[in-house]
Simulated assay, not measured.
Amino acid sequence: MSDRTRTSDVDVVILGAGISGSLLALLLGRQGLRVTVVEPKPAVGTKGADFLKPRGLRILAEHGLLDVLRARGALQRATIDFHHDGAPLLSYDFAEHTGLGYYLVIPYAETVRAVLGACAGLSTVDIRFDTSLVDVHTEGSMVTEAGLSDGTRLRARAFVDSSGSGTPLRDLIEPERRMISYDHGLWMTTIPSTRTRGQLYFSSERWLAYLYSVTAGSARVFVGVPSELEEAVFLRQSVDLTTKLSSFVTDEDGIAALDASAFERAPVSAFTSGPYHRGNAVLLGGSTFGCHPMTGQGMSYTMEDATVLAAVLGEARDADELDRLLGQRYEPRRAVHARLVEYGDNLARHYHDRDAYLGVHDVVLHGGDVL
């Protein structure tokens, strides 16, 4: 019988090899805990945040990953320019508003690969791609065993769902989700570019455009349009994209060659939920909350969550202590998340109104410093 078809004992099973699951695996592995990460995709996912703001950068630096990201081509930036109806709105300078003084931009997949690369040096961490959780066995409020699609059965002290999708673990915890909907949709493409500043444009007609470098030779372009126009702009193309953008975007080089057919939808998943655990089953990352992309903070917060959870899982010696520590240290993260979600919601509902947007823009929350 092969290693992959027998019942094995580990300390922690993690669903999802995204940034939060990968970082949690690394931190637990460095404590000597035996960890199995289960990822249904065949490889690292490419869809995720490209921004790393001070809150997340401090975590990466603390765990020796910041230089790894720089070596992978991370771009250091300090300023984001905001415009409304073609006129300057504000210029956010990280050197002025944050202690760290900069942010990094790097494709999401590169950040995850950097963390997984560090995991590869740990004999106690097993990353399994193209594998999914198929069932869980429970005794009371505790998960005792999980079955995987590769035939493996795993027993563990704790089971963490960082997948961001419906799984038997999330069903077991039964978190109550409060979903937030918006009257605009976001679409994204990547273009050749050597720009050096991030530029965010708003329109009083509820359009927006965000242009920023993601590598030395390319930039992301996000375009937000009123929901009722999404099909006309990006699918039927009966409304000309560049004509609409030119009415409020001053960076003509960034929009002149845009092709509406090259855009793909970037889902806006904003929500709060709770509780974050039941017994030894725990939610993490996209399974716990979602904030509007305007905050640029979701990934940094989930990395912070992973460090809190790693400390709890490393310290707890039995089920009762685990439940107590999760309640004391991890469940309070819901209040932190709710504040960020509320902030993103305010930004998303007021960007079309110049004065209202300036009224809700928060220099501390936007920069991500812990103050």
Results as ranks from 00 to 15, higher is better:
M142D: 04
M179N: 06
F234K: 07
V221L: 05
G274S: 11
G56N: 09
G290R: 03
R329W: 05
T98A: 11
V143H: 03
D353Q: 14
D362H: 12
P168L: 03
L284A: 00
K41M: 15
V214Y: 01
L24D: 04
R72W: 02
A306P: 06
C291K: 01
S162C: 15
R170A: 11
R153D: 02
V44K: 01
S132H: 01
R178H: 12
V105G: 08
A61F: 12
P332W: 04
G32N: 03
A262V: 03
H337Q: 15
I80D: 03
L148G: 10
A262M: 08
R128F: 05
R334H: 04
A74M: 11
T79D: 08
Y357Q: 05
V115P: 11
H361M: 15
M294L: 15
H352V: 11
F82G: 00
G21K: 06
Y301P: 00
T215R: 09
A25C: 14
E264S: 13
S269H: 13
D345P: 01
L75N: 03
G32F: 04
A260Q: 04
T250E: 03
L15T: 08
R128Q: 14
Y201F: 12
L90C: 01
G274A: 08
A256P: 06
V312A: 06
L133K: 12
